[in-house]
């Protein structure tokens, strides 16, 4: 249940931005979460709703965009989606792989009044 820690980090960032931009009520928080990260969207939403109570973020809609695990083969330059987390190149079987996406835990956008 590290979603509690993730939710706390998230709330802190949103509250930071609320202050910076003088927002009174946050409606939507858009996130990107990589499929390789161990975060369960439903658990994160549950924790976030709980800790956002009595803040300007209470009741905000958490919109989570799951990002597939995309990798690049540095030998043949092929870019592919690592289905079932296979980190070798389907084209040349190379192991020289760079992770391009899939580890995200980002806040993207906040909507509010």
């Amino acid at each position: 249940m590290h979603e509690v820690s993730i939710a706390e980090g998230l709330l802190q960032i949103v509250l930071d931005e609320v202050k910076k931009h003088s927002i009174s009520k946050v409606r939507v928080v858009k996130l990107k979460i990589g499929e390789l990260s161990g975060v369960q969207p439903s658990a994160l939403t549950f924790c976030f709703d709980l800790i956002a109570k009595d803040t300007p973020v209470e009741g905000a809609d958490l919109r989570i965009d799951m990002v597939p695990v995309k990798v690049k083969c540095l030998d043949c330059e092929d870019v592919f989606i690592a289905e079932d987390h296979s980190f070798f190149c389907p084209d040349c079987s190379g192991l020289n792989i760079e992770l391009m996406s899939g580890r995200e835990l980002h806040v993207q956008e906040i909507e509010g009044d």
Partner: peptide
């Protein structure tokens, strides 16, 4: 208002 944030959680 829409505020682009782009910060690591």
């Amino acid at each position: 208002v829409k505020i682009p944030v782009v910060r690591e959680i």
